[in-house]
């Protein structure tokens, strides 16, 4: 398996205050790899994700460095190329399941949206795939959920619907920006388990962004620790857990409450 995503010397500078948020970070992801990006608030985790997805507003930041996804350099291709590679190639799950679904559009329609944009499937085929996806993420009665509005679902259900929407087209990479932070602990564990299953089943790479080392440990085999816009340490999750080399990583580990350390 080759490299799916290569990030090389990625720098992001905000134009309004001329501050550099990322000081040249580099990492690669193999197909089907699960990588955790941990760090405190403001360490640049989300900016990294936004730069990879191209969701970053090009008028407000300057981005230098390479982001190569499936052989395409995302910062040197046109917007329409970007759309045609990203839509089917990447999915994203945001932190707040309340805000990540459009409140006025039915769940089913939103799950189908990528299919509608990137494939020429008929409405019946789309409906079937969407219901399959809703079923696959463990939502009960997917037929009913299909024609419900987001506000009729619970937080956990919404996050599952969100994952279904991202997975319906079987992307290569799923970017999860704090996917479980807004959920309570029991739902959190189920969502992480689901992500793991989906990743194994469909060979989807997952880039998990989290401030919580334990969440990363549950899901990812590799981890990169970010601090103030740099990656200070990266490697196998278990290695880093057992023998953290960087001082900041050690502090981060020490910040985990003792009772949870052996989860």
């Amino acid at each position: 398996m080759g490299d799916m995503l290569t990030v090389k010397d990625l720098r992001v500078t905000f134009l309004d205050n001329n501050k550099e948020a990322l000081h040249g970070i580099s990492f690669t992801m193999q197909e089907g790899e699960r990588l955790g990006l941990v760090g405190e608030s403001g360490s640049g985790k989300t900016v990294t994700a936004m730069a990879i997805t191209g969701l970053i507003e090009r008028s407000r930041v300057t981005v230098t460095g390479d982001v190569v996804f499936e052989g395409m350099d995302l910062h040197r291709c046109s917007r329409s190329q970007l759309r045609s590679i990203q839509g089917p190639g990447m999915g994203v799950v945001f932190q707040e399941p309340m805000n990540s679904l459009n409140p006025l559009i039915k769940v089913g329609y939103q799950v189908e949206e990528t299919l509608r944009i990137h494939t020429k499937k008929t409405p019946e085929e789309r409906r079937k795939l969407a219901i399959d996806a809703l079923d696959r993420v463990g939502l009960p009665n997917p037929d009913e959920i299909y024609s419900k509005y987001p506000h009729q679902l619970s937080g956990g259900q919404r996050q599952r619907a969100m994952i279904a929407a991202a997975m319906v087209i079987h992307p290569k990479l799923l970017i999860c920006d704090e996917p479980t932070t807004a959920l309570d602990v029991s739902v959190q564990a189920k969502i992480l388990k689901l992500l793991k299953e989906l990743s194994d089943e469909y060979k989807v790479g997952i880039l998990l962004i989290s401030h919580d080392l334990l969440v990363v440990k549950q899901l990812c085999e590799n981890v990169a620790v970010m601090y103030k816009g740099n990656i200070v340490e990266q490697g196998k999750t278990l290695d880093i857990f057992n023998a953290p080399k960087d001082e900041y990583t050690r502090q981060l580990m020490a910040a985990i409450p003792k009772r949870r350390r052996h989860e």
Partner: peptide
């Protein structure tokens, strides 16, 4: 987030503006 999401899904600007 849902507008960002639609953008990532590859929706065009006009589609985002008028549909989402």
């Amino acid at each position: 987030d849902y507008v960002r999401n639609a953008r990532l899904m590859g929706a065009s600007n006009m589609r985002i503006l008028f549909l989402h």
